Amino acid sequence: MDDAASIDGDTTRPLSQAELDALTDQLIDKLKTVFDPEIPVDIYELGLVYKVDVSDDKDVAIDMTLTAPGCPVAGDMPGWVEQAVMEIPGVRSCKVDLVFDPPWDPSRMSDEAKLQLNMF
Results as ranks from 00 to 15, higher is better:
112 E>S: 13
30 K>N: 00
69 P>N: 11
49 V>H: 01
14 P>A: 14
51 K>T: 07
119 M>N: 12
35 F>K: 03
51 K>S: 03
27 L>Y: 03
47 G>E: 10
55 S>R: 08
22 A>V: 00
94 C>G: 08
89 P>F: 04
30 K>V: 03
43 I>E: 06
19 E>N: 05
114 K>I: 02
23 L>K: 04
118 N>M: 13
117 L>E: 09
21 D>A: 07
62 I>V: 15
118 N>F: 14
73 V>G: 03
43 I>P: 05
54 V>G: 09
19 E>I: 00
97 D>Y: 09
41 V>I: 11
88 I>M: 02
74 A>K: 09
29 D>S: 15
59 D>E: 14
82 E>H: 06
37 P>N: 12
6 S>F: 06
105 D>R: 03
4 A>D: 14
51 K>A: 02
104 W>L: 08
65 T>R: 03
42 D>A: 06
15 L>F: 11
62 I>T: 05
89 P>S: 06
110 S>K: 08
64 M>V: 06
28 I>V: 15
57 D>A: 15
72 P>D: 00
119 M>I: 10
49 V>D: 02
54 V>Y: 07
63 D>V: 00
112 E>P: 05
93 S>M: 10
44 Y>R: 12
75 G>V: 14
66 L>D: 06
10 D>M: 15
84 A>W: 07
73 V>H: 00
118 N>L: 13
45 E>K: 08
23 L>N: 05
14 P>N: 08
96 V>K: 00
52 V>E: 02
58 K>G: 09
90 G>C: 04
97 D>N: 15
39 I>R: 01
113 A>C: 10
65 T>Q: 07
35 F>I: 06
112 E>L: 09
113 A>R: 07
84 A>R: 07
59 D>Y: 11
23 L>S: 01
65 T>G: 05
12 T>A: 05
80 W>A: 09
77 M>L: 15
8 D>N: 14
